[in-house]
Write a protein that binds this DNA or RNA. Structure first.
Lengths: 142, 142
DNA sequence: CTTAAATATATAAACAAAATATAAAGAATA
DNA sequence: TATTCTTTATATTTTGTTTATATATTTAAG
């Protein structure tokens, strides 16, 4: 398949939280309210928030009046940052399989493919890095 | 996850068949022998071959002395062609999910993301189109 | 025209990953 | 100290990929 739905959901979460801030709401947003508004199952949302937290994009606060808050400026968070928060380490193409040791030629072929795959993945990431959340918010308003 | 292993396997199949041709073997290659050499399960290989066949990359012949043969020149088959033969229609990112009708803003956000995703997928494909099987064979020999 | 050697097709099973459901535990504030 | 909220853990459902197995169907050759 392709990348998980969670990535898209994570982007909407970040956009949603950033949007609230632009509208002057600086308090923590509860995960329950985010889950409800964006229609994301709570366990799924929690995983997403953990990823975003580990990546330094948001911070969460436990306990009463706790919730989620953006840690960076929307303009400082690229789509690639969100991608890395969710899909970190999952490569685009899956090229690792055994061929039952068939001499140098197939091995060499796999090497060449691995190189191409890596280059392709890099260009994908470069593309994702061209857009940040601030820009998306601007485009939403226009 | 990412794209399926079948894509990598399909590339190795095409490389393998092309390589045989370069070595002067113009007869049909049996699927059984390909499955054995490349260590691919037969049903999996059959699906791959069907995809390659539908894309016009190879032709298969039933019956005795049948098998698989390349339909184009190695230099005329790009990695993207093989990709399309296997992963046709599967988009890179998965952005279609319901948000329980939350007004125009999230909808607009989804639109903007869909646009970015499409652009990113296009740049991935452009990258895959830069390399063809003939080039890979050349690199293998050097 | 029969047989052998191949691919094609269909069904099911095994496996892996993603998404969700549910319940319990832990932290912070009033 | 009780309430409200996040965190963690476990299990289930769903979905997709890969493989196993068996049966047809095609084709060339004797």
């Amino acid at each position: 398949m392709s990348y998980s739905l969670s990535f898209s959901k994570a982007l909407l979460v970040v956009i949603f939280v950033s949007d609230k801030i632009r509208q002057g709401q600086y308090e923590y947003l509860s995960t329950a309210s985010i889950a409800k508004v964006l229609n994301i199952a709570k366990p799924t949302l929690v995983k997403i928030l953990q990823g975003l937290n580990a990546e330094g994009i948001i911070e969460t606060k436990e306990g009463k009046a706790g919730g989620v808050r953006l840690l960076k400026q929307p303009g400082e968070v690229t789509v690639l940052d969100v991608f890395n928060a969710i899909e970190k380490g999952k490569s685009l193409f899956n090229s690792s399989f055994d061929m039952r040791a068939q001499g140098q030629r197939p091995d060499r072929a796999q090497e060449i493919l691995a190189e191409l795959f890596q280059k392709t993945e890099q260009s994908m990431k470069t593309e994702l890095a061209t857009k940040n959340i601030g820009q998306i918010l601007d485009e939403m308003s226009s």
